[in-house]
């Protein structure tokens, strides 16, 4: 079996994960668990379904009662924008709007597919968690938070923790959206006894 080898890989890959690995190991204690995330998906009506960031955004839009716009910036025509954002380490940007309530997420078109997807889910994760504004690793969030959230728990206090949780939401979303009804936690929702 290859599973023991897989466990070795997990151990060796810890070097790569450095800071965020601790976030994953702390998940059961402090951060959103996959089970809690699955409940959020059920509330959005996405549990057991294949979905993409746009589907998640539409469902979140309906639940939070605000407009979420996703804009892809064609940076191929403006390489200087991509260079500037790359130097700053910005992959996406979230902006809030007060009247009418809404949020806009900007993402660059030249990002590799997985980065684009995870960045979108990361920003949508901040919206779902109802995170307040602050210095942001993937770019600044501008404007005022709308004060609504999908998450049952209030946002984490520490900025770094909020970023880690948004990363975790992004991975959970990508897994759940890709696997649909074959996702472990979606199946568990029909297997309680």
């Amino acid at each position: 079996m290859i599973l023991p080898e897989l466990k070795n890989v997990l151990t060796s890959a810890r070097r790569f994960l450095s800071s965020s690995d601790s976030a994953i190991s702390d998940a059961a204690r402090r951060f959103l668990t996959p089970e809690e995330f699955q409940v959020e998906l059920a509330i959005l009506g996405l549990s057991g379904k294949e979905f993409h960031p746009t589907d998640y955004a539409v469902a979140l839009e309906d639940y939070l009662g605000l407009r979420i716009a996703i804009s892809v910036i064609p940076d191929a025509h403006y390489p200087e924008i991509a260079r500037m954002l790359a130097q700053r380490g910005s992959m996406a940007q979230l902006r809030y709007r007060e009247d009418p309530p809404g949020a806009a997420i900007f993402v660059l078109s030249s990002l590799p597919p997985i980065v684009r997807t995870l960045s979108l889910y990361h920003e949508l994760g901040h919206l779902a968690a109802g995170d307040p504004l602050g210095a942001r690793r993937y770019g600044p969030a501008v404007g005022q938070p709308v004060g609504m959230r999908l998450a049952r728990r209030p946002p984490l206090l520490d900025e770094e923790d909020r970023e880690k949780e948004a990363d975790m939401r992004a991975v959970y979303s990508l897994l759940a959206g890709s696997l649909g009804p074959r996702h472990y936690y979606a199946e568990k929702m029909y297997d309680v006894v």
Partner: peptide
């Protein structure tokens, strides 16, 4: 856990590659 780790690791790696190339 391996699936989560894979997606997380690949996302970070690709983000860094993109940033290095574009910058």
């Amino acid at each position: 856990a391996a699936y989560s780790l894979w997606l997380h690791s690949q996302g970070r790696f690709e983000a860094r590659r993109w940033a290095l190339v574009k910058s």
